[in-house]
């Protein structure tokens, strides 16, 4: 057999180099973006931000006068209420669903075997979907903030008595909250992403995620709750302080947000190493 090797190599000398890693990533991203078309993941991203805003909007629309009787200014109260509605339960569940749905696009099509048989490395596949989920997560948060501000402005027109016109929008706080909330979602996003890739199913990651979110709520009084990635968005939502007509938040990452970043980095590295050499059986 060894004797045939030189002639074999002579007949197939031109093994063109593999595409550069960045080019592989770019191609995988272009493909993954196309696959998002008409998916539940995309609809969820575009609509999920509206839900907490709508709830808070309705509360302020119908019961705003009662809320405002307690004192304070309209914008800070409205933003605080919306963010806490979103951060408690909806945001973690959104991240759980989003990661599961994006990964499920391949699982549902039994496309892992196809994907890994293409001339792109496993790293590109891993990174591309991660970047996509990170982008969708950012889009959803931005849409949430946009809708939040829009709903407040709508309320100032529909219910001038609530006093939205009297207070200013605390932009500074909103921007910092946006940033810190995003960081707070990263830890659980990474855990959910790796769980989804590992089990290549939809039910398992959603079950794990929902279970973890519910368990976290039960553990809120535990002194180590800040280390649980599923609790981080709630921690950030509670970080705002309402002063006299103001809404402020610290312009730095809190401890639980650093933990979230730690989970993000640690889980992704570990997950990648586990998944890199894994057999593809479906």
């Amino acid at each position: 057999m060894e004797a045939t090797l030189p002639s074999t190599l002579a007949d197939f000398p031109t093994l063109s180099a593999a595409p550069a890693p960045l080019l592989q990533l770019q191609r995988t991203l272009a493909s993954d973006t196309l696959k998002l078309k008409r998916t539940a993941a995309l609809r969820l991203t575009l609509l999920s931000g509206a839900f907490p805003v709508l709830i808070t909007f309705l509360i302020f629309f119908f019961k705003g006068d009662i809320i405002m009787k307690a004192g304070g200014s309209a914008w800070p109260r409205f933003i605080n209420a919306s963010w806490q509605t979103a951060g408690t339960l909806l945001l973690p569940l959104f991240v759980v669903l989003l990661t599961s749905l994006v990964v499920n696009i391949e699982t549902k099509a039994t496309a892992w075997k196809h994907l890994y048989a293409q001339p792109v490395g496993r790293g590109a596949v891993f990174l591309s979907k991660l970047l996509l989920i990170l982008a969708l997560n950012a889009v959803a948060l931005l849409l949430f903030v946009g809708l939040l501000l829009g709903a407040g402005m709508l309320l100032s027109v529909l219910k001038p008595k609530l006093g939205f016109a009297l207070s200013t929008i605390p932009f500074d706080t909103v921007v910092w909250m946006l940033l810190r909330t995003y960081v707070a979602t990263l830890g659980l996003l990474a855990v959910q992403y790796v769980v989804s890739l590992f089990w290549r199913s939809f039910v398992v990651p959603v079950g794990v995620g929902m279970g973890a979110v519910v368990a976290t709520i039960a553990l809120l009084s535990w002194e180590h709750v800040d280390k649980i990635p599923y609790a981080a968005p709630l921690g950030t939502a509670m970080a705002m302080k309402m002063g006299k007509g103001t809404l402020t938040v610290a312009h730095e990452l809190a401890k639980h947000e650093w933990y979230s970043l730690g989970w993000f980095a640690g889980v992704l590295v570990l997950g990648y190493l586990v998944l890199l050499r894994r057999n593809v059986t479906n």
Binding site: L5, T8, L9, D11, F12, L15, S16, A17, A18, P19, Q24, L34, K35, K37, R38, T39, I105, K108, A109, T110, A111, W112, K113, H114, L115, A117, Q118, P119, V120, G121
Partner: peptide
């Protein structure tokens, strides 16, 4: 494949291979 070890040159070799494994992997929503 083509005289090269797949374990060492997977991506470059797969560039010259087309495959259909079991049922085709199709995205039904597309």
């Amino acid at each position: 494949l083509f005289g090269h070890d797949l374990a060492r040159h997977r991506v470059a070799l797969l560039d010259r291979v087309g495959a259909l494994i079991e049922n085709p992997s199709l995205y039904d929503h597309l």
